[in-house]
């Protein structure tokens, strides 16, 4: 195994630098087809991809879930409540700690480099903690931590993958019998040519002008987290949030169905 700077001796290391082969220019007519109310996948503009979600797949975890939505495949497990082991963690005597760890597998996406050392995974872990935190009754677990581990097996659209991870994690929390106010449903919308399209995949996301990611608790009708990127007018944002809320409610039904089993 070679020892170039930046290599990790705990891994089997490849070459110092590698790149995917250059792709020929693909037909960029997604923008035109959106105006004609057509999407590359054949879906309606306001239709999220159908959701398959199943709980209790990892035998050693307190709770676990597996999710498929279009091309997205995500697995998640939850441990806890258990004593806080982490050195330097803030131990609060009154509330528990929710820790999320989000990981991409190397082969999971077309847009990520191999063994990328960046803060993206940490950033998404933060988003997960912020989106799920308000839903978990943390005051029920003083001095303990609830650990959520998410692994992306395949992704299709960055925002859609984060949304899927939030849904998967909240079902895993429910499967682990963690007290929650409600399960968190989540959906993303992208704006292309002034139109909002719901649950955009990678091809559509490459063309987007703006996007909104919204995490929502449908039973208590509360929003736990939202991110907007890109420039829109206030009306457009409100419109986008409403579309997200509708899609979240739809997706929530199939989450509830699998939670019931």
């Amino acid at each position: 195994m070679s020892g170039f700077p930046g290599s990790d001796r705990r891994l089997v290391n490849g070459p110092e630098r590698s790149v995917p082969p250059l792709e020929p220019n693909t037909d960029g007519n997604i923008r035109d087809s959106i105006i004609q109310n057509k999407r590359p996948s054949g879906r309606e503009i306001l239709q999220p991809r159908p959701l398959f979600i199943k709980s209790d797949l990892v035998n050693n975890a307190s709770g676990s879930a597996y999710l498929e939505q279009g091309g997205i495949k995500i697995s998640c497990s939850v441990y806890g409540p258990r004593p806080i082991k982490k050195v330097g963690a803030i131990v609060s005597s009154t509330t528990g700690n929710l820790e999320c760890e989000f990981k991409f597998s190397q082969f999971s996406s077309s847009w990520r480099k191999i063994q990328q050392r960046d803060s993206e995974e940490k950033e998404i872990s933060q988003i997960l903690t912020q989106a799920l935190g308000p839903a978990v009754c943390l005051h029920m677990f003083p001095k303990s931590s609830i650990d959520v581990f998410v692994t992306v097996i395949e992704s299709d659209g960055r925002s859609a993958t984060i949304a899927a991870a939030i849904k998967c994690a909240s079902l895993a929390l429910a499967d682990g019998s963690i007290d929650m106010y409600d399960m968190v449903s989540c959906c993303s919308v992208s704006m292309i040519n002034g139109f909002w399209i719901v649950d955009s995949d990678q091809k559509e996301e490459n063309e987007e002008d703006a996007s909104i990611l919204l995490a929502y608790m449908p039973s208590s009708q509360e929003i736990t987290h939202t991110i907007q990127t890109g420039k829109t007018s206030i009306e457009q944002t409100q419109n986008g949030i409403n579309l997200c809320l509708d899609a979240c409610t739809k997706l929530y039904e199939s989450m509830m169905l699998s939670a019931a089993y």
Binding site: L11, N13, V58, A61, S77, E101, S105, Q106, D147, F149
Partner: peptide, 19 residues
């Protein structure tokens, strides 16, 4: 370049962090 990833996702035997 084969690498096996045993994350805490798959079992409580494994700790987060480096392999």
């Amino acid at each position: 370049v084969p690498n096996v990833k045993l994350t805490p996702m798959c079992s409580n035997k494994f700790a987060p962090g480096p392999p």
